[in-house]
Design a protein around this nucleic acid. Structure first.
Lengths: 262, 262
DNA sequence: CTTGCCCACTCGTCTATACGAGTATGCCTG
DNA sequence: CAGGCATACTCGTATAGACGAGTGGGCAAG
């Protein structure tokens, strides 16, 4: 059995009020923060820590579960526990839907990812008519049924975002918006062609822990929250013409907004 | 020993691949989602679930820890495990720092909370000069030392937000901004009086799990992420005159932005 | 009636053990 | 040399038991 790198981890304080598993978690966390264990690096195995601290295995596992909950480490069955690497972050600027960005052919996601040197993918295309949820109906102004466009975005093979656009049927039915591929500039370009000149967007942002379904869809590690963004697009008459419900892996995004001071 | 409410929780499927503690967590989660256990209500005790499912106590505790990680429940020592109530949410509009909101005497936080019928408090006032962190220095344009204004915001006694404003010394030193109470309209009003007409703000938003220090300061339950917002204020010359670093309890906030479509 | 104590019930921490399953390595066999 | 298997290591799941500590209700003493 390989022994621990000396000096990285200290001893326990038996006189402390702090629970043993918390003390161990504290020491590991500090070692990670100080860079003694680097991103992607393997932590000492459970057995090694059992030997080092003279505690039972469940106590060590308890420590790991604390760090997992904080999103600091992740365990891989059969391999070990590793410092969770910070994935490349996608930056969303508040002007990403401005009209000037809508002229070219490709979607904003593809363009941005290419620019950042990542390999973008969009999958799980589903376009169908369905009953509007209570929330969507309220946002769109009491519509009963809507066109729903679902898709999942991946960067370098990793799912980072899952989004659904909802549009009133009287706007979207029978148009290019109801096609799997709505064409250059996306559905916002199509909306404007159809005479719905976009005036402004409203975005609501929440953060929370993911549901089990979201963990599965976004392949989230434990300890990674999601950013839940709901965007409503309004046309020049003040009518809500689209609601887009987006769930993002929080470790893959920074949202950036520019606001006037007036 | 009180017996379980009948019919709420089913049996285990011994043929399933799914781990027993996950099956139990699934059943509890579903019962909560369906409203069989309401907000604030006590779940069956560990001992009751041990009896009901015929498993060991650690297995039941493991189930609870899954739900705790999802932010669905919280345990209270000596009392039980409860469905976590959703706290009242504070809504932050993107125009909350617009000049027109800056005329009256009280701070935005106090005004909004009063309007919402909550009892607001601001504590942990600390105002001091200090060395700028690398990040703050970069945002403010390579300043070495800054004035830091720290404060914590509470709603109905619960801490919801912890914020630090950083200002270059050449702007803030010796002014009302360096006072614990900067006066009506806050530091933005003072900045404008000092000739720094505010032009626009830039806000960066991240979500992540809290550090242990943040858990303590905001008294966060496990399974509650934080929203990390960094706002930079620019004056009419394009100079960054303030950086405000804010950490919010994610279960207490919805951020709302209004964006032009042009 | 009030005070204070005891006790039952709750979750928190920790030990010791067992077996299963995924991974990687190296050796052995063909 | 190539393939397959044995093995040792990893974490995952589950059991059974022990003691500690916070909470609240009931009972007994004052």
């Amino acid at each position: 059995m390989p022994s621990l790198p000396s000096g990285v981890l200290g001893d326990l304080d038996p006189t402390s009020d702090r629970a043993v598993f918390r003390q161990i978690a504290d020491q590991l966390r500090e070692a990670i923060d100080r860079g003694r264990f680097k991103e992607g690096e393997k932590l000492p195995s459970e057995a090694e820590l059992v030997d080092h601290y003279g505690v039972s295995r469940m106590t060590v596992r308890n420590s790991f579960s604390v760090l997992q909950g904080e999103g600091l480490v992740h365990a891989e069955h059969g391999k070990g526990v590793f410092v969770r690497p910070r994935p490349p972050v996608r930056r969303l600027a508040s002007d990403r839907f401005a009209r000037r960005h809508r002229e070219q052919g490709k979607s904003a996601f593809i363009v941005e990812a290419d620019a950042a040197g990542s390999h973008p993918q969009v999958d799980s295309l589903e376009v169908k008519e369905e009953k509007a949820s209570q929330d969507v109906s309220a946002r769109l102004g009491s519509v009963r049924r809507v066109l729903a466009r679902r898709r999942r975005y991946l960067l370098d093979g990793r799912p980072v975002e899952f989004a659904t656009s909802y549009l009133p049927l009287d706007i979207a039915r029978g148009t290019a918006i109801a096609e799997p591929n709505p064409g250059p500039g996306g559905i916002y370009a199509r909306l404007e062609e159809l005479g719905h000149r976009l005036d402004h967007f409203e975005e609501e942002i929440r953060a929370r822990m993911p549901s089990p379904a979201e963990v599965k869809t976004l392949r989230l590690a434990s300890g990674v929250p999601v950013i839940h963004l709901i965007r409503t697009a309004f046309d020049a008459e003040g009518r809500a013409v689209e609601v887009c419900d987006t769930v993002m892996a929080a470790d893959a995004y920074v949202l950036s907004y520019q606001l006037p001071a007036t």
